[in-house]
Simulated scan of single mutants.
Amino acid sequence: MRITKILTAVLAAALCLGLTLPAAAAKKKVRIAYVEWDCAATSTAMVKAVLQEKMGYEVETLPVSAAAMWQAVASGDVDGMVTAWLPVTHADYYAKVKDKVEDIGVVSTGAKLGWAVPDYVTIDSMDQVNANADKFDGKVIGIDPGSGLMRLSEKALKDYDMNKMELMEGSGATMTAALGDAIKNHKWVVVTAWSPHWMFGRWHLKYLKDPKGSLGKEEHIDTIVRKGLSKDMPEVYAFLKRFHWKSPEQFQMVMAWNQQPGADRYENAKKFMAENPDMVKEWLGQK
């Protein structure tokens, strides 16, 4: 009888330990903010896939405006983001919160902002746009208001005295839709553009020269995390510090996958991981 009671107690203790140990060892949820740009969404989906599929974390991704993204990292409401365009595009945002965040690495080099036109458009410079305003219907097709590219494009209108042109607000999706429609009908169109972006793989485009430098020079896309992440989640911090694309072309390839009909960013991230195991190992610090 006494032996039975002892065995029951031992089993109960074992069951208790078996039920509570996993809960105690549960990993914290990781929260990543991003802007609904193709480059940002692609990198964010890749980070989410690696953290969940390879590292066992639950990841929440939050699409917000650029200003809200920076503020969320600075306040600690999210753990980080992988789409900081520096040193120009997001310079104002970074200056306001630089003491509250940490820049831990370059996600992609070769980043560029500009105005792009189809290659059949016969002008080559931004200082020729205003003289051809009628051909462009007096419009520069833009993206979401408040973005760094739109702020710099407003500056460009003034720098080049484009009094016949208007910058149209929209989104990345509406911009590429307008571009695609114009190309289909062989019409002149000028859009606010950036690289890396899948549209340069789909259509024959060219950047207009920017002799006044209104839209800045070549940039890089960085990973920004909240203060304290290295102590709270050292494994996540180390991964985000190592995460990068091998080249802008590789980055644009995955973005192009995400533009296919019925594409799923997360599934495409898993596809990339399966096809590039050595790169994933490098991100995880396993080689």
Score class of each variant (00 low, 15 high):
140 V>W: 00
115 W>V: 11
79 D>R: 01
183 I>W: 01
189 V>P: 00
165 M>S: 09
154 E>G: 10
108 S>Q: 09
148 G>V: 06
81 M>L: 12
138 G>N: 12
78 V>W: 00
96 K>D: 13
104 I>C: 11
116 A>E: 02
103 D>F: 10
144 D>F: 11
75 S>G: 09
173 A>M: 12
98 K>C: 13
126 M>G: 10
193 A>K: 00
163 N>L: 07
177 A>F: 03
85 W>C: 03
83 T>F: 01
157 L>N: 07
82 V>R: 00
124 D>W: 06
108 S>D: 05
191 V>N: 01
82 V>F: 02
113 L>G: 01
176 T>H: 05
80 G>C: 05
142 G>Q: 03
153 S>G: 15
123 I>W: 03
204 H>E: 15
94 Y>N: 11
125 S>V: 07
152 L>N: 04
127 D>G: 09
155 K>N: 12
109 T>M: 06
87 P>V: 02
133 A>D: 07
86 L>Q: 05
109 T>K: 10
176 T>P: 00
157 L>H: 06
76 G>E: 01
136 F>V: 12
147 S>Q: 08
95 A>Q: 12
88 V>K: 04
111 A>K: 00
97 V>L: 04
156 A>F: 03
112 K>I: 08
84 A>L: 07
151 R>W: 03
105 G>R: 09
135 K>N: 14
149 L>A: 15
188 W>T: 10
82 V>A: 13
185 N>Y: 07
197 H>Y: 04
166 E>L: 05
94 Y>I: 07
154 E>P: 02
183 I>Q: 05
202 R>V: 14
121 V>M: 06
152 L>K: 08
185 N>F: 07
117 V>E: 01
135 K>H: 14
166 E>V: 15
148 G>N: 02
148 G>R: 00
109 T>V: 10
103 D>M: 14
171 S>I: 05
184 K>I: 12
145 P>L: 10
193 A>W: 00
142 G>F: 01
136 F>Q: 03
149 L>C: 04
108 S>G: 09
79 D>T: 05
182 A>E: 00
154 E>Y: 05
111 A>V: 14
191 V>W: 01
201 G>F: 02
175 M>W: 00
173 A>Q: 10
161 D>F: 06
125 S>P: 05
167 L>Y: 09
125 S>K: 09
178 A>C: 06
